[in-house]
Design a protein around this nucleic acid. Structure first.
Lengths: 164, 164
DNA sequence: TATTGTTATACTCTATAACTATA
DNA sequence: TATAGTTATAGAGTATAACAATA
């Protein structure tokens, strides 16, 4: 597991006592290669970076996109319902919605049925914007496909279908 | 995509104008179901939570484990080399190492070859501890296997082999 | 001039706890 | 009493920038 290929790039003690550079690709990961979590984490970081870059022009991040999508598909949901469904802390969702409401994408409507809660809706502007975000997100998804392969992406979705 | 199954649990406007509860599992994810990033992110969160729980008794988190494993397999690496290999900011690694050094798991040795840099080594105590951490991490890995299936885990590792 | 380790700052995200207004 | 939304705080983690020592 301990890689020691002969290369050039940080510094390492050589047989003659002088130092040479070590390339990142010759540093062994040892037990990490057997951990799904390590690869999944690195992959997730890559995906988010691509998503943020691809939707950079509209300034929408993954969590914001997921909130808008769920509200768009389920108008009238309460904040608690959205938070639970997406695994976001309700305290965190307050700030996310503050931002989306300031941008006139979402509106909080006082619920008549339960006056403690807010019914969440997209604004007309929000509907239009979300349609654009979805086109960009689809473009991002094609980047994923290009990165790991169409068939592998499909298998990944199948394997992880339970984590929704 | 908009789920509207008849259930019980938050509140939703019913045909008669009164409200009823909505279960999380009847809220449609819409476009999110087609995004690999969504499933990958949820899975990654599950994995990290299980890792943190499984290694809770020894108080080691995923990033700390990855740093210890790489140093253990490549003694003498500089901080820059570890940071680059694992995709950690060098400023962040300083704090991670401060903590691991306080716990006597790692030592920074002044490099003679390049006096700007530190050669990183596990302490004897660190070697022993890492062996235990690896046993617990293997136990965590069995939880992953139990969660998604042995064959699916193997395929996942194969698909994501490039993200290391 | 460039790099290594360090310190510092700001922003995101997670995890809690406590408060209010309702139920 | 319990719940929905809010506010506040603390801890990870990320992203930067700048500095001292050294190359």
């Amino acid at each position: 597991m301990t890689a020691t290929a002969p290369q050039t790039s940080p510094r390492k003690r050589a047989s003659n006592g002088t130092a040479r550079r070590i390339d990142a690709d010759e540093i062994g990961l040892d037990a990490l290669v057997g951990h799904a979590g390590y690869a999944v984490r690195r992959f997730q970081i890559w995906i988010f970076q691509d998503f943020i870059r691809t939707l950079g022009a509209v300034d929408i991040r993954p969590t914001q996109y997921s909130v808008l999508t769920v509200i768009g598909a389920n108008p009238g949901l309460s904040q608690m319902a959205v938070a639970k469904r997406l695994g976001i802390e309700r305290a965190r969702l307050v700030h996310l919605l503050d931002s989306l409401e300031q941008r006139k994408l979402v509106k909080r409507v006082k619920s008549k049925a339960d006056r403690r809660s807010h019914a969440l809706h997209l604004t007309v502007q929000g509907e239009t914007a979300l349609a654009k975000f979805k086109r960009l997100a689809a473009e991002h998804e094609r980047h994923v496909e290009a990165k790991i392969g169409k068939e592998n992406r499909a298998q990944l979705l199948r394997i992880l279908a339970g984590f929704t």
